[in-house]
Design a protein around this nucleic acid. Structure first.
Lengths: 216, 216
DNA sequence: TAGATTGTTAATCGATTAACAATC
DNA sequence: TAGATTGTTAATCGATTAACAATC
């Protein structure tokens, strides 16, 4: 499980880069908090936990924070990422140009369908059977799983076997992995359903309130 | 903010459908828990909170649970969803065929680039300026925001203005919205960075352990 | 100095887990 | 009945918030 404070640190980093690009050299917990949508205390607490220190009067030096956070997130090197499954999501990720700015690189894609192997020229695409070999050759640690539900666990196992330690899973399956492998699930459908629930809930509430008023 | 129990209810639902398709009529909290990766107590607690009740000996009747959960999630009607931005992600979502099984329907897409307007024939695609009009006509409540960062807040405002109550945001921006509008952010890059952090952390730990052993 | 801001400690809140009575 | 399972209440855990001393 990924702790929330690390997720926020990642957000802070993006925000700091933005402010640095705007020409700022220093920043207050208050400003950062506003931008991310948390309390200033939360920001200070997070920084404190990762030993990121500021100046009692002048806030935090952006460059200092970025240096430390970059170290924390191992931003000194480019992290190789492999992608299994070149369906809709897979193709979209191949097209995406934002990885390299974040020191990440899609180094290879894999699919069973040979027709997909050459369609995308941005990264080399291999047959799924070659995945373990390529993972080992590239020494990739992170994999994106965008294959159909039915084969997700199997492909996941192959990834783990070949040394993958973190998996971003788009398949609607709870993957079984060893303890030292982290899985992060993304499900657009689930998120949308949750949003629908929330929106219906608030309208239900409003209707109740209306009825209540009418009764009065 | 979306509560975790609702996210799990959504997962339980998918799992229940799966078991129902396999021919099961009843299920235990233990089974469901295993499948989702939580404790049986968690499952029972969640069910209890939403007033989903079982039988002390025979577990839960799948059909009963599904009926109640479907009502809870308003699965009786098809929910209309609009999509702003037909870049990589937008296009992938248009191609995705899984929405309708979950009683959701992408009813329209929007973009500024007229070249994109006719490229995808699965759903009607309009100019972004027509978005408010179409949202109102369709009475859509949920929107997906997949536009560039620079215009995300602006497009978001237009959505809210036109009556959207839930936004799935793919732009790397913290959207400012009224209280009754729920925003759910998805950032593939952030998730990958978090995975990298986790994987490096465990390897760092192992190296430390090794060193410790050597010293002994 | 006075005021503003950090950083830590304590308090609170919410969510998860444990314990166990109820019961089919 | 005995055993297994639910459902609730209490305990624990973790994360957030509040309070406030330290200090630039």
């Amino acid at each position: 499980m990924i702790k929330k404070n690390i997720q926020r640190i990642i957000q802070y980093r993006m925000c700091l880069l933005k402010f640095q690009n705007l020409g700022f050299e220093r920043i207050f917990s208050y400003t950062l908090a506003q931008e991310i949508g948390v309390s200033p205390e939360q920001v200070r607490k997070d920084f404190s936990q990762f030993n990121l220190r500021g100046n009692k009067k002048a806030g935090y030096k952006i460059q200092d924070l970025l240096d430390k956070i970059n170290e924390l997130l191992h931003k000194e090197d480019i992290h190789k990422i492999i992608l299994a499954g070149l369906g809709n999501i897979g193709k979209a990720l191949v097209q995406y140009k934002g990885f390299i700015n974040r020191n990440m690189q899609l180094v290879a894609g894999f699919d069973i369908d040979p027709a997909k192997l050459k369609k995308n020229c941005r990264i080399p695409v291999f047959h799924i059977d070659d995945m373990p070999k390529v993972i080992r050759e590239e020494k990739a640690r992170i994999g994106i799983l965008a294959v159909p539900e039915q084969v997700a666990q199997e492909v996941c196992n192959q990834m783990v076997e070949a040394g993958i330690k973190g998996i971003l899973n788009f398949a609607p399956v709870m993957l079984k992995t060893p303890e030292d492998v982290t899985v992060q699930n993304i499900s657009v459908c689930n998120e949308l359903e949750a949003l629908i629930y929330m929106s219906e809930k608030t309208t239900d509430k409003k209707e109740k309130e209306k009825k209540g008023k009418k009764r009065k």
